Simulated assay, not measured.
Amino acid sequence: MSSVRILGIDPGLRVTGFGVIEKDGNQLRYVASGCIKSNDKASLPTRLGTLFAGISEVIETYRPDQSAVEIVFVNVNPQSTLLLGQARGAAVTALVHGGLSVAEYTALQVKQAVVGHGKAAKQQVQDMVVRLLSLAGSPSSDAADALACAICHAHGGQGLGALATAGYRVRGGRLIR
C-alpha cells in the first residue's frame, strides 16, 4: 500500500494552524506543521487573502493527497463566529483550489480520535500528538490542533456524512450508537 499525505487545517482569522502527516499502513509520520498569521490591523479581505495564499503555499510545498478541516461552531459572540466562518471559508476554498478533497470534523471527533474522549483539554491533545507522531518537542497549540485533525482523518474518518464508523451516528457533535 502506498503512503497518503494528509494536510490538516485548524482555521482561525488571526492564526491558522496547519499540519502535514503521512500515513503508510498503520504508521503515521510527521512531515511539517506551522501557523499562517494575518495582520490584525489589515482589512478583512486582506487577511482572508493572506490565509488563502498561505494555505496555497503549503499545498504547493508539501503536495498533500487529502485534507481535513475542523468545523467551526457558534461561539458566544456572533461577530466572532461570523469572522471565523469567513476564515474557514477561505481555507476550504484554498484547499479545493489546490485540487484536494476536504473532509470536515468537529472538535469532539478530533479529540475523540486522538485522545480517546471528546472533552480532552488542549494540552492533552498536544501531548498525544507528540506521542503519536514521535515528535521531539511540542508544536504550538494551533499546529497541534491541525496535526490532530490530520490524525483523525488518518484514523479512518472521512468527515461528517461519511464516517467510517458503521453503526454510529453524530448527535450534538458526538458519536453515538
Rank of each mutant, 00 (worst) to 15 (best):
A144Q: 00
A53M: 08
T93V: 14
L82P: 04
G49V: 06
Q112S: 10
Q126N: 03
A144C: 11
S101H: 04
G157T: 02
Q112M: 09
S67I: 03
A121G: 05
Q124P: 07
A121F: 01
G137H: 10
I36V: 15
A148C: 12
Y105M: 07
S33G: 07
A166R: 09
S138D: 05
L133Q: 03
P11L: 02
D40Y: 06
L13T: 07
L108P: 01
G34Q: 07
M1I: 07
V74K: 05
S2T: 11
S141Q: 15
Q27L: 15
L13I: 09
A42E: 11
L147P: 02
G159W: 03
G49K: 06
A107M: 05
S67F: 02
A87R: 01
L175C: 01
A113K: 07
I59N: 00
Q126T: 13
G157L: 09
Y168N: 00
V114D: 01
Y168W: 13
L100R: 04
L108A: 12
E60Q: 12
N39E: 13
Q112Y: 02
G34D: 06
A164P: 05
D142M: 05
A148I: 09
R171W: 04
G118C: 03
R131K: 14
A32W: 08
D24N: 12
A107K: 04
K37R: 12
A166M: 07
C149T: 15
A146G: 06
S33M: 08
V76Q: 00
I6M: 00
A144D: 06
V96M: 15
G19W: 08
Q112C: 00
P139T: 11
K37H: 08
F52D: 09
Y105C: 10
G89Q: 05
S101G: 14
R47A: 10
Q66T: 01
L83F: 11
G173A: 09
A121W: 10
K119Q: 12
I151F: 03
T81H: 07
M128T: 01
G49N: 14
I59W: 08
E104N: 10
A146E: 01
A68F: 01
A143M: 12
V72W: 09
E60C: 11
L160P: 01
G156L: 06
Q86E: 14
P64M: 03
A150T: 11
V114Y: 04
Q86N: 10
N77S: 11
V110N: 01
A120P: 02
N26L: 14
A143I: 05
L100I: 15
R47Y: 06
S134C: 15
V96A: 15
N75G: 13
R63A: 13
A166K: 10
M128A: 00
V76W: 01
H153L: 13
